[in-house]
């Protein structure tokens, strides 16, 4: 029982002090999980990240599940995952409840108009970064253009686009083998 509580509490703390995406979590994980608890090595952590990135789901959740699972099986995975999401659920619920009451206030409304410009700028920067990392050659550029076309012109749902990309990736590649 103790290990499950430890896993929950450790990941609760990590969830509470992570701002932003799963990568912001890395230094906290190194400190708590590698240095203090010794639950994983630095290399393990890198492996979990590269797998967490290429498995479905949010990276932060995937990494927490990996560490919890290797530490204490299925229940350990569940404890770690619940730990990492609990702070979000509490904090966001409180903020959303308060905010919905104040949205009618003109100052709050002006503030959020300004914030939405900052958000667009932040997303643009993240997109640029993602694009540079993932669109590296003609093939990936073609996938990008086709996916954009399917979404914008053909009106496909995001799920359909992702499934189509998976299907395209599964088609055996001939040229390389010859």
């Amino acid at each position: 029982m103790k290990i499950y509580l430890q896993l929950f509490w450790t990941f609760f703390k990590i969830g509470l002090f992570t701002f932003g995406g799963g990568y912001a979590m890395l230094p906290l994980l190194q400190d708590e999980v590698v240095r203090k608890k010794g639950w994983a090595s630095e290399n393990d952590l890198m492996d979990y990240y590269s797998l967490g990135q290429c498995t479905p789901g949010i990276i932060a959740i995937n990494v927490a599940t990996f560490i919890g699972y290797y530490r204490a099986g299925k229940s350990g995975a569940t404890a770690a995952t619940l730990g990492i999401v609990t702070p979000s659920v509490i904090v966001i619920t409180l903020i959303a409840a308060v905010l919905q009451k104040f949205m009618a206030n003109p100052y709050v409304a002006h503030a959020f108009e300004g914030i939405s410009l900052a958000v667009v700028a932040l997303i643009a920067d993240m997109l640029l970064d993602l694009g540079r990392k993932n669109i590296r050659d003609w093939l990936t550029a073609a996938v990008f253009v086709i996916a954009l076309g399917l979404m914008v012109i053909a009106g496909w749902s995001p799920a359909a686009v992702v499934l189509a990309a998976i299907a395209a990736g599964l088609i055996p590649q001939r040229e390389k083998k010859q």
Binding site: L130, G131, I135, V145, A147, V161, A165, G169
Partner: peptide, 9 residues
């Protein structure tokens, strides 16, 4: 294949 599609989305 998935990653560039996600960037497009």
């Amino acid at each position: 294949f998935i990653r560039p599609a996600v960037v497009a989305l």
